[in-house]
Amino acid sequence: MKLFLRSLIGFVLALLAILPFIFLGLSLYDAFPNIYGILALGIISVLSLWMAYGIFNLIRKKGLLKILSYPFSSPDLDNLKKNKDE
């Protein structure tokens, strides 16, 4: 069950990571409807899929809370009373 929830959350976040890049690629294709637009759309799509796959694997292996916890957060907010007195 835990792996299923991690996979589901990873899939949703990977999809959210893909959407802006696909929009950018389609906008470039609309601006340049020739081979350059197709190449730009293809390159942006492949890079966004690669990034989304990395996000999916990271969340599936470690979990969302592990990624959002200590190493990526600010430890300065742990001791609010001590920081308040200084």
Results as ranks from 00 to 15, higher is better:
F72G: 08
Y36M: 15
L64H: 05
K66Q: 11
L8Y: 11
L28A: 05
R6M: 07
S27I: 08
L15R: 11
G37Q: 05
L68H: 08
Y53E: 11
A14Q: 00
I59W: 03
R60A: 12
K66C: 08
D78A: 13
S45T: 11
K66E: 14
N83G: 05
L3W: 09
G10E: 10
L41I: 05
G42V: 12
I38P: 00
N57W: 10
S74G: 09
I44Q: 02
F4D: 04
P71C: 07
L3D: 06
I22W: 02
L77T: 14
S74M: 06
I18L: 13
R60C: 06
L64D: 00
S73N: 12
L3C: 07
L28F: 09
F72V: 15
D30V: 15
I43N: 01
I67V: 15
S74R: 04
K61I: 11
Y70M: 07
S45C: 08
Y70I: 12
I44L: 14
L58D: 06
F21Y: 06
G54A: 09
R6S: 08
F56S: 09
R6N: 11
M51V: 11
F4V: 14
F4K: 11
I43D: 00
L5P: 01
I18E: 04
I43Q: 01
F4Y: 08
L26K: 06
N34E: 15
L65T: 09
K81Q: 07
A40P: 01
I43M: 08
S48T: 02
S27P: 03
L65I: 14
Y29A: 10
I55N: 02
L13E: 03
S48V: 00
S69M: 11
A14K: 00
D76R: 14
I44W: 01
L39M: 09
L77C: 06
A52K: 00
M1W: 10
D85E: 13
F56Q: 07
L13S: 02
G37M: 07
F11E: 03
N79E: 13
S48Y: 00
S27E: 08
K82A: 10
F4W: 05
L26A: 04
D76P: 02
I59D: 03
I43T: 09
S48N: 02
L41P: 10
I9V: 15
S69W: 10
M51R: 04
L58I: 13
P33W: 10
M51C: 08
N57L: 12
L77I: 14
D78H: 12
L77M: 11
K61Y: 12
S69E: 11
S74Y: 04
K81Y: 10
G10W: 06
S69A: 15
D78V: 15
F21Q: 01
L15N: 07
F72K: 04
R6T: 04
I9K: 02
V46L: 13
K66M: 12
L41Q: 03
S7V: 05
A40W: 01
N34F: 14
I55L: 15
L13P: 00
P33D: 06
P33Y: 07
I55S: 03
P75K: 13
L64S: 03
I9H: 05
I55F: 04
I55T: 06
